[in-house]
Simulated scan of single mutants.
Amino acid sequence: MRVIKPVGRDAAVRKYDILSALTAHALASDAQSQRLVLRLTVLITARYNWQRDELITGQKEIARMWCVDERTVKRDMARLRAMGWVIVKRQGARGRVSVLGLDLDRIMIDTRPSWTNIGEDFVQRMTGPEIPSAADNVVPFRRLDMPNQGDGLWRRVCEQLQTEDAAIFDAWFRPMIETGQAEGVLSLTAPSRFHATYLRTHLLSRLQSALRRAEPGMVAVRIEAP
């Protein structure tokens, strides 16, 4: 699956693709999930800043928009954070509301089973190569039994990444080595400077999303070169 970034020349098309994936996913889900995705979609279309990846809206305003009470807003936003779709970029304090963001990569991965309901053209567009293509630019690594991942947190993250996209995992995530954990940050070392730069530029959000799912208390990934 290619990285989705709704900015630049094709921004409008990418935004429609994300909204199409969300709504198709909702229609294929149960009533409770449909309501949750609809509420998120309203927030995206009405208040989300695509350029800055920011959603700055207080619970009172969201409650009015959703036609619910603030307790329902608190509950549903917690569900969206637990899913990894909504992330807290800056916690609210002293009367200021929290600054939220969207993990678009996570959203597209989770909605992928419903893409065929939109059409094969949509699936083909969404499953195009990464930029640059991992298959075209990296010598494939021989499949091993995850020798670098150990038995703890990084192994759990790797298992999730491999399930989501085995080709991307083999090319970019498998060679990474865990070098430590401190204050909610997982430190990894890449096999080369180029490898580290590519991960930071193209795949960091996917990596951080998998980390939060494996261990909600972790907040970031540090990628180092040898």
Rank of each mutant, 00 (worst) to 15 (best):
R94G: 11
D121W: 15
L203F: 10
V86G: 01
D136C: 02
K74P: 01
Q160R: 06
F169C: 05
G84M: 03
D165L: 00
T111F: 02
M77T: 01
V123Q: 11
Y16E: 13
S114E: 07
M176I: 06
M218G: 12
S20N: 12
L102R: 01
Q32T: 07
F141R: 15
I44C: 11
V219D: 12
L199R: 01
D69C: 14
I18C: 03
P191E: 05
W154S: 00
E178L: 04
P132T: 15
D76G: 04
T189Q: 12
H202G: 04
R14M: 04
Q91C: 07
D151N: 13
T72N: 13
V73I: 09
W172K: 01
R14I: 09
G92V: 04
P216V: 13
F141P: 13
M126G: 10
R81K: 11
F141A: 15
V123S: 10
A135Q: 11
K89R: 11
P175A: 08
A63S: 14
S33V: 06
E224T: 14
I107C: 04
M83K: 06
L38H: 14
A31K: 12
H25C: 08
V157Y: 02
R90W: 13
M108E: 01
L43G: 05
D136W: 04
S192K: 04
Q162V: 07
L55A: 07
P175L: 03
N49H: 13
